[in-house]
């Protein structure tokens, strides 16, 4: 009796949900379709000043120069997410059982290429699709493979690991402040130095993004077996 009642109620709730969602979707669709055909894009403005950004690829120019603020804060978001993950849990233990032969072989084969490819993407970002985020993602893929394969890595000092995680954010902010001290605005890279600055920032950011994503993948702060209570 009350079961049938509850079922009818659930059905009504589901129908209501779809009606509301369909209405919202229809409203959004109308809004998108009624936008003027030649919207006020920023493509022309982006291309007009491309020569002064230090890179030739428009998307990289937007990410690293025009809207460098966004990218700086994005590095901060990534770092904050990592802080959140570390504050909540300890990393799961690395697999101790030997991995399958296929995984082991593929890891040995792929990781060097992935690192090389990350370097290529970083360099290519200046004039074609690529850049710090893509390079960082490829680095992270290599790191995840190594983590999963249970390979015994030489232990990195904790301070070094943490410095590398912060490297991108610090380099980015330092470059921004440096150009400010040189008389410009924060993150306003002078055209003459922009290429070198952006490449340095991208290299640092790529390393931090890669390591940061691996650290998030590990799901918690690194466990410290030998640490004594302080």
């Amino acid at each position: 009796m009350s079961d049938a009642h509850a079922a009818a109620g659930a059905l009504a709730a589901r129908a209501l949900l779809w009606i509301v969602l369909a209405g919202a979707g229809a409203m959004l669709a109308t809004a998108v379709l009624s936008l003027p055909e030649d919207g006020l894009g920023l493509a022309d403005e982006t291309l007009a000043d491309l020569g002064r950004t230090g890179v030739e690829h428009p998307v990289t120019a937007v990410l690293m120069n025009y809207r460098a603020y966004d990218t700086l804060l994005e590095m901060a978001v990534l770092f904050l997410a990592l802080v959140g993950v570390w504050s909540m849990a300890e990393a799961r233990p690395r697999p101790t059982a030997p991995p399958g032969l296929v995984l082991q072989f593929l890891t040995q084969l792929l990781v060097p290429f992935l690192i090389l490819f990350a370097g290529y993407l970083l360099w290519a970002g200046a004039h074609e699709p690529g850049g710090a985020f893509q390079a960082g993602a490829v680095l992270a893929a290599a790191g995840v493979l190594v983590t999963l394969s249970g390979a015994q890595l030489p232990s990195v000092p904790r301070a070094l690991h943490r410095s590398l995680l912060l490297l991108g954010l610090v380099t980015f902010a330092a470059a921004g402040v440096a150009v400010q001290l040189g008389g410009g605005a924060f993150l306003e890279f002078p055209p003459s130095a922009a290429k070198a600055l952006i490449l340095a920032i991208e290299a640092a950011a790529g390393i931090s993004i890669g390591l940061g994503l691996v650290a998030i993948f590990e799901g918690g702060r690194p466990s410290e077996p030998e640490s004594a209570p302080r």
């Binding site: 920023l42 998307v59 120019a61 990410l63 994005e74 990534l78």
Partner: peptide, 23 residues
């Protein structure tokens, strides 16, 4: 020529989405 500004915003968004998903 597609507008590079929204494309850059989407790249930023993808990275932020992954960070948020991990958290």
């Amino acid at each position: 020529t597609p507008d590079p500004v929204p494309q850059a915003l989407v790249i930023t968004g993808i990275v932020v989405a992954v960070a948020a998903t991990g958290l």
